[in-house]
Design a protein around this nucleic acid. Structure first.
Lengths: 198, 198
DNA sequence: AGCGCGTGCAAGTACGTACTTGCACAGATG
DNA sequence: CATCTGTGCAAGTACGTACTTGCACGCGCT
């Protein structure tokens, strides 16, 4: 047989194409709104193949969530920072936007689902680990007298700020200047708000 | 026949019970995950009755969205404020939390859907109108020299702050002190961040 | 009393979807 | 060459779900 796509035909590659198609469709229509037929078609694979790989739909969902949501380690990232709180936070914000954007659809899926699922667990893995790391960073800055407040609340505030933009604010699009000025604005307000007054 | 529930049996009441059941189930399982059978059962109504009222499922969804999402007018609310920016914003925040919580599930549903739907339009009606009003409020405060910055960005920042808490931050629950200190913290940081320095 | 409206009930239709199965084929590997 | 593995293909099963229909019943009218 011939195939439409220039497939590399290793089993592993088949698996990856199925996972990619799964993610794309799930993000659009949700888990219940997506059919295995559609997934197979988009992946350029026979539906039977899909079931041979994953057994059943739920396992496919789980595999998809696990595949695309690894915990992000940014401890190392935090150690490469210059030491200037302002530029540190700008960089953290940029990194945060990047990371959260990557799991945006997963997070929304998890929000729209009834109870804890594999998707929910996986989707929040990165944000939760980031939150912890960020709280440690804030704690250091508080200890050094640069910032004031509860580090946990500071980290949460900061993440929420970014979160609201990434997740929900398609309805409030960035201005024509693009996303960078908005990020700068956010970080500045945050910094002014929490910098220790002398 | 007898019925389990102490039903008031007017057609209008039947309609309302169906809408309530629809909303409850949709919030849990999404539109595709919810069956008309379940809705009818939860509403204490026969499935046929449901279809006699709404024709088909999509119309039911639309009716549900329209019924539960009216635009919130808080112009009048803003005029009752004391004039002290700090307490003003605290009150606005409280009101905002209230309003957004009421449409939280609708907003999440709209986020999880592919394109613009009736739910999407309805769910964002209140937040969008609030955003406009709030921007006007900020503009006044900027004009009076109390705050500084672009009123639109200020309003957006403020709403995003609340939005992140209401929508997504079940994963970052409020501390044991309850939600009020968190709100105060948020508003304080915001105010410190945007108050005009003299 | 008689009528109509809203509803319950039971059965049914049409269709979509998860998942299976048996067979054929092509490529890699021994 | 022989075999095994991964896949395509076509047909099929079982079931769930949106939506329909015909009938009976009860309540509130006039």
């Amino acid at each position: 047989m011939f195939n439409a796509l220039p497939n590399s035909r290793s089993p592993e590659d088949t698996r990856l194409r199925i996972l990619a198609a799964t993610r794309e469709l799930f993000a659009k229509r949700g888990r219940r709104g997506t059919t295995t037929r559609e997934i197979a078609e988009l992946a350029g694979v026979n539906e039977a193949t899909l079931f041979r790989h994953f057994g059943h739909k739920d396992a496919l969902i789980e595999a998809c969530a696990e595949h695309y949501c690894q915990a992000v380690q940014l401890q190392e990232f935090l150690h490469h920072l210059t030491g200037d709180v302002d530029s540190d936070l700008q960089q953290i914000a940029a990194r945060l936007i990047e990371t959260m954007s990557a799991v945006r659809d997963m997070i929304i899926m998890s929000l729209a689902e009834e109870e804890e699922s594999a998707v929910g667990t996986a989707a929040w893995r990165a944000p939760l680990s980031i939150h912890t790391t960020l709280a440690e960073y804030m704690a250091r800055r508080v200890a050094s007298g640069e910032l004031e407040g509860d580090p946990l609340l500071l980290a949460r505030f900061f993440m929420g700020m970014i979160f609201s933009r990434v997740i929900g604010m398609k309805k409030f699009p960035d201005g024509p200047e693009g996303p960078v000025p908005m990020t700068e604005f956010q970080v500045n307000v945050f910094l002014n708000g929490v910098r220790k007054s002398k």
